[in-house]
Design a protein around this nucleic acid. Structure first.
Lengths: 342, 342
DNA sequence: CTGAAAGCGCTAACAC
DNA sequence: GTGTTAGCGCTTTCAG
């Protein structure tokens, strides 16, 4: 019945031969079943199953000039900061028939640049990147290669590229308002590094905005920059609390930093929020069960990932140039933020 | 100076023409620079830069019959359980010149099967999967396609496929020994679903092993299965504590479940470990700063990811069939595990 | 609705 | 060390 299996994978031609049609018809049937007659379709389906046919990716990509693959480069997967949005991004991509190529940059612009080139060389039809700030040569490269880019984690409609994200600055301003309105005047922030990072910079700027709004001198804001992490947050907390005029509230640029700060407060014998208030940014799953529960800003991870997948799919398929999308953040005011002591 | 840019991306032929060499030489130079003379190499490099050449992925894949891409399918990125190992896996892949294609299964075998086929259709040279248990037809498919598989998160040398992971059963036995040796006799476990999941099943079996070792009746182990999560862990905890003979120690199959259990204990007014001990499995970054710090089993995420990347690269490049690798787990005995009350 | 055939851009023999 | 060239397997006009 079967032709004795040759020592190679079945090709379109094998399927065509077995189904008694041309390769063109098989190709159509596989890519858009509606374009072939039902009877033909059945014969082809039978042949595909019988032969265990699976299309050759390289050949398809070469002929079709697309891979149905989207690349994403995120700073790290080591904590849940970017992983959650990525989960939504990936599953939405699957829903759109796309596959995810993933790379990480470890927050290093040079590595990110290399990854961008790698993903393009690996056939990514489009790219999802975090934040706008990078060497313009990279954007030129992507434009020449015809690879559309969507930026996430920021909302910056003034930028020439589409983005889907939230207003880091405004979100942090809202949190800082909440802090100041509880009587705090001496403020510190533990921020992620602000170099080559528009998100962290915007968050610090957002605190200063709030201080100005409330008649405080933004020059008095104590700023410590460090890597995102629990340990680093703990060390930074010790540092700011060791100052001559220690803050009564420490506004952290991220939940990990804030959780580290709270742990360190406990070690130093300081009560949160009795002696010092601490706030975060992100609303990680565990922040609400911290002790005390962490006041933070909820980032719309899932929504951001889902929308990014949809927009990017549209961009690579339809050549669309969608408008930037702004997503709302929620203020989660929990017990780690209290009134100023005394 | 330049030929007026045609309305298409430069190809190998363009580079060859500009450099005054053949396409074969350019190809060699790009893939193995040592195989062309230095002078030739320089001319080619210059042409590549001037033209802004970037290789066409489909053509390369078609001709070379490989993509230098590895696929991975993990249950979810929504929490850090699998994300941390993936980070190590991805960066080690990059070090080996490979790129990561990522999919997720949401713990659903049917979705995982679909993803396996998708990743193969998208050109994955090899696949990293979590756990051994899946439809044998999938393994047949992969074998026919010549796509090697490496299984992670388990150590099961009796299986026909290579794996890199740890002995879930033995690791859990070690933890259960520690629990029993603190006087606990009434034990409960909150486990992930054990259907189609060799890891969760092994962990429960490990507890029973320990009970037998210490002369307890393994039939008395109270078992609740649920999804991994804080909320689900909390609910499961309420459930086991509502039994006639509530346990004095709740051994959780995962840190998220354990953190949820501890939160629920607080809500129920139970002291941990005063009234009931709780243990986890994973050692998430936040488990050590929980209150009380969570006793747990440390999984070698990074080592597992790094080794998996190396082994898979070897498998797809050299056709090697490496030995399974067993990695050690560490017992982290922290304050959430205390002596039996009374 | 289906078939014939021309490439897509690169790699890897093989020859020099 | 370098050039020539024959495919790789699929998609896509263009005819019929």
């Amino acid at each position: 019945m079967d032709t004795p299996a040759p020592d190679r994978l079945p090709t379109l031609a094998d399927v065509a031969a077995r189904a008694g049609v041309s390769t063109a018809t098989v190709s159509r049937c596989l890519n858009d079943p509606a374009r072939v007659q039902k009877a033909t379709r059945q014969k082809i389906t039978e042949a595909v199953t019988a032969l265990g046919y699976s299309p050759n990716f390289g050949a398809r990509a070469l002929a079709a000039k697309r891979t149905d693959t989207i690349g994403a480069i995120i700073p790290t997967l080591d904590n849940s900061i970017f992983a959650r949005g990525l989960q939504a991004f990936q599953s939405a991509l699957v829903d759109h028939g796309m596959t995810l190529l993933l790379a990480s940059s470890s927050f290093r612009p040079d590595l990110e640049a290399a990854q961008i080139r790698t993903l393009v060389a690996r056939g990514a039809d489009g790219l999802m990147l975090i934040g706008h700030e990078r060497d313009p040569a990279l954007y030129d490269f992507l434009e020449r290669q015809g690879v559309p880019v969507l930026v996430s984690w920021v909302h910056a409609p003034e930028q020439p590229r589409a983005s889907v994200g939230f207003d880091n600055r405004a979100a942090m301003t809202a949190m800082a308002h909440a802090v100041i309105d509880r009587g705090h005047r001496r403020l510190a922030t533990i921020s992620g590094y602000t170099q080559a990072n528009d998100r962290t910079r915007d968050r610090v700027a957002g605190i200063r905005d709030a201080m100005v709004d409330r008649g405080l001198n933004p020059g008095t804001l104590q700023v410590v920059e460090t890597h995102y992490g629990i340990e680093t947050g703990a060390r930074a907390f010790s540092q700011v609390m060791g100052n001559e005029q220690p803050p009564t509230a420490v506004i952290c640029g991220n939940d990990l930093l804030a959780l580290g700060a709270m742990r360190q407060a406990r070690r130093l014998g300081l009560s949160v929020p009795g002696d010092v208030s601490v706030t975060g940014f992100d609303d990680m799953e565990l922040s609400s069960i911290a002790d005390p529960p962490l006041a933070t800003v909820r980032i719309p991870h899932a929504e951001m990932g889902t929308q990014a997948a949809g927009m990017l799919t549209q961009m690579v398929r339809g050549g669309a140039r969608p408008e930037s999308v702004a997503l709302p953040c929620d203020l989660c005011l929990r017990a780690s933020l209290g009134p100023v002591p005394g």
